[in-house]
């Protein structure tokens, strides 16, 4: 059974952060993958999550849009507790449909792109706004084409994903998430599956997005990107955030020995 999160009275004061995690815990069987994560992400902020393999970065990201449920702790996105609806002093667990509805505010980009191979690029972009948000087709089409233009792939609207390079596919995946006009974007190692010469194009798109004011939570091994684009960097190790602070400081002058070792190893 999922532990029901309690309400914090502080939650109702001041401006709400876009994401707030308090002591978030998550286990797979006997393995506790998240061992009490505390993290706040303000609206418009870009936060990079770095850390060794298996430290729980992807799991945390998946908890934020409820692809995984948390076992304990509290997790807010915007005004709402992930997975629950507040009615007075009671928290009601959301139905599947409501969970889906909430996800429409959160875009997610995966390591392996996960484009739908049986649909053209344009169909990939238009699917969710039309079927989930029930938006007008022509309105969505115009928005999708504009987004393809923005990621430099206007010419590929009618191509099938498998005919594109990895870098192009990932840019389409970003455009697909943006077509939903999300308030928050999650990236899970968006450049890890790419050939080195294709990484730059994808990072450029992400940088452009960050500068446009999008709130972003990015799991990445691109330390240079974290330093230059992120506002803050959080270092994960063994299911905990060992260190979190301004990007330049964490990357160039880490306080913790573990962070220093990790950064030395990935450079």
């Amino acid at each position: 059974m999922t532990a029901v999160p309690t309400l914090s009275p502080a939650a109702s004061t001041t401006t709400r952060p876009m994401v707030r995690a308090e002591q978030v815990r998550k286990s797979y069987g006997p393995l506790e993958v998240l061992q009490g994560i505390d993290l706040e992400i303000a609206t418009g902020e870009v936060v990079c999550l770095i850390g060794p393999s298996g430290s729980g970065k992807s799991t945390f990201l998946r908890c934020v849009n409820h692809l995984e449920t948390i076992d304990a702790g509290r997790l807010w996105v915007g005004d709402e507790i992930v997975g629950y609806r507040q009615r007075g002093t009671k928290l009601h667990e959301l139905s599947d449909r409501e969970v889906c509805r909430r996800r429409t505010d959160i875009g997610m980009v995966f390591q392996h792109f996960n484009l739908f191979p049986h649909m053209t690029v344009l169909q990939n972009l238009m699917l969710a706004p039309v079927t989930v948000l029930k938006e007008d087709k022509e309105v969505v089409r115009a928005r999708a084409l504009a987004l393809l233009e923005r990621v430099g792939l206007a010419a590929k609207a009618d191509a099938y994903p498998r005919s594109l390079s990895g870098g192009q596919q990932q840019r389409v995946a970003i455009a697909r998430a943006l077509t939903m006009q999300p308030k928050l974007m999650l990236f899970d190692e968006p450049t890890s599956a790419l050939d080195p010469e294709l990484v730059g194009d994808v990072l450029a798109v992400m940088k452009d997005l960050a500068q446009s004011g999008m709130t972003m939570l990015v799991v990445t091994h691109e330390i240079g990107f974290a330093r230059d684009v992120a506002d803050r960097v959080a270092f994960f190790d063994g299911g905990r955030i060992v260190e979190c602070g301004p990007a330049a400081q964490v990357v160039t002058d880490p306080r913790h020995e573990r962070t220093r070792e990790f950064l030395a190893a990935v450079r």
């Binding site: 449909r97 997610m108 392996h112 996960n114 739908f116 079927t131």
Partner: peptide
């Protein structure tokens, strides 16, 4: 059909039924 396809569909807000009909079964 790879798991990533259902993940991507869920992340876009498609319900389980929509994911099955639009994404999984066609593939």
């Amino acid at each position: 059909v790879e798991w990533g396809q259902s993940d991507a569909a869920s992340a876009l807000g498609l319900t389980k039924g929509q994911t099955m009909r639009r994404i999984v079964l066609p593939q």
